[in-house]
Design a binder for these strands. Structure first.
Length: 467
RNA sequence: GGCGCCAUAGCCAAGUGGUAAGGCAGUGGACUGCAAAUCCGCGAUCCCCCAGUUCAAAUCUGGGUGGCGCCUCCA
């Protein structure tokens, strides 16, 4: 399996530290607002990574943090007259609702920054002791000039980063590039006692501390959005490697941006759509399908139109699955025919191709294409005209579910039953059709359609679905 | 200014040296009482432009054009 590593800017063969196990860390949200569609991309794509690793037999420990102490949370809390804790808890709950909606599995651990203060303080102390950090008036800063590899992830020498840095006139730091590990508490801010007085952690240090606590000093994969490369991930490397004296992360993975009218979707540009509102109009499933249809590193332009396209594509897959379910129940009993056996035996090739493309840096666009090709073959083999056996229908459903499950394709679930009233109408329509009273049959069909039930006639019986 | 990314049919999107996947939309046919779904067929003589390397380039090299991102909180 090959993964593109941002550190080396190349696709590399993935070799875990410990055979059969993967230690995976993803930077989670700062919980002060609903997540937007841009935030959903890493969530979905790294969920796919995790699922695929598990599919390939790895035992994955997946850690995703919540940043629950931060300037923005404090600001939001003040605006709403609530405490930081109330704000962060509210938006953690909202985050979980959206994650679930998007089909994202829970991480193994979801640590919170505020529950790791002890680890953070200890890490800062280590950095000070080793000369990588210094205290000024209750703040603690990282001494970037001391860390030799600074800039290796963003591939920029320190001087160039420095040239672009904003210089605060009243800056108390030794170097403009130095960043805060610990911030002295201002009035009305949440704080914790520390060797440097009351304060709270800076943003970057929490990921180093939690990654170390839950996954160890060196981890396999660390992922996040491209905008985290600098400064966040660069700083994590500086902190963790200086403190532990060993490599922090073997593979860095970064997803591309979602844009709106070709401008990066971001909170600062205020051109974002929350997942909640997009899902309200187009459904959570459309959002996931939209992401799966392209490669995780390519830029992606968001529009309502494109979500509609994604939804239509998904519809074809859901219809195929419903068809398989229908024939698993209404198909012919007994053994497969010779021709069917040939089809069933050939299905494995889709699994092989699926794995080939997924092994190539998680090419979900190709993986989806493979599933569409599978669907075309299945639709031809399992149809009213082919009058298939239940056995073939089940064999097809099995591989379809397997592959769709690996990338979490949001296929509509089968509904077991209909309201009695609707069943009666369907039966009445069948009688009318038998009597060649097509006017009445069509009237009933229209009536059901108005209720959101769409009918399809087949020699094996009536199929129905909800619109 | 430094570093990096992107440009493929109406739309979305793979492919990155061997002669253009897949999807959406559209359209012709089969099937159907009619429909719906499905299946079969149709769409880029060509992958932003120019030059070069090569037996061979959308794919490599050089030069353009257009768009975007990071360098500051941001997935």
């Amino acid at each position: 399996m090959k993964l593109f590593n941002s550190l080396t800017m190349q696709k590399e063969e993935f070799v875990p530290i410990e055979e059969g196990k993967v230690r995976l860390y993803a930077c989670g949200p700062t919980v002060y607002n609903y997540i937007h569609v841009g935030n959903a991309r890493p969530l979905i794509m790294f969920d796919v990574l995790r699922r695929y690793l598990e599919y390939r037999g790895y035992e994955v420990t997946f850690v995703q943090n919540f940043t629950d102490v931060d300037d923005k949370i404090i600001k939001r809390a003040n605006e709403e007259g609530l405490t930081s804790k109330e704000i962060s808890e509210k938006y953690i709950a909202e985050f979980r609702t959206d994650s679930r909606g998007l089909g994202v599995h829970e991480a193994t651990v979801h640590p919170k920054a505020t529950e790791n203060i002890e680890q953070i303080i200890s890490l800062v102390e280590t950095l000070i002791r080793k000369g990588y950090a210094y205290e000024v008036n209750g703040d603690v800063y990282y001494r970037t000039a001391k860390f030799e590899g600074y800039g290796k992830l963003s591939h920029q020498p320190l001087e160039d980063l420095q040239a672009g840095a904003r210089i605060d006139v009243a800056d108390i730091k030794e170097n403009p590039m130095d960043f805060a590990l610990w911030k002295a508490a201002k009035p009305d801010e949440p704080y914790w006692e520390s060797p440097w007085g009351r304060g709270r952690p800076g943003w970057h240090i929490e990921c180093s501390a939690m990654s170390n606590r839950y996954l160890g000093e060196t981890i396999d994969i660390h992922c996040g959005g491209q905008d985290l490369i600098f400064p966040h991930h660069e700083n994590e490397i500086a902190q963790s490697e200086a403190a532990n004296g060993c490599k922090f992360v073997n593979y860095w993975m970064h997803n591309g941006f979602i844009s709106v009218d070709n401008k990066k979707m971001s909170k600062s540009l205020n051109n974002f759509f929350t997942v909640r509102e997009a899902a309200g109009v187009y459904g959570y499933d459309s959002i996931r399908m939209f992401m799966l249809m392209s490669h995780y590193r390519s830029p992606l332009n968001y529009s309502g139109d494109i979500l509609t396209q994604a939804n239509n594509a998904l519809e074809r897959l859901s219809t195929a699955k419903a068809n398989l379910d229908f024939f698993a129940e209404n198909g012919v009993d007994g053994e497969m025919t010779a021709a069917e056996r040939e089809v069933a035996e050939g299905l494995g090739k889709y699994r092989t191709r699926f794995c080939e493309v997924m092994d190539d840096d998680l090419n979900t666009a190709d993986a989806v294409a493979v599933i569409f090709e599978l669907v075309r073959e299945i639709n031809a083999a399992v149809s009213p005209a082919s009058n298939p056996t239940k056995a073939l229908s089940k064999a097809c459903a099995e591989i379809f579910d397997e592959l769709a499950g690996v990338i979490g394709l949001p296929i509509a679930k089968k509904e077991e039953s209909l309201e009695l009233e609707v069943e009666k109408l369907i039966e009445a329509r069948q009688q009318a059709r038998k009597a060649k009273n097509f006017a009445e049959a069509d009237r009933i069909r229209d009536e059901l359609k108005a209720k959101g039930i769409v009918l399809e006639d087949t020699p094996q019986g009536v199929k129905w679905k909800r619109q």
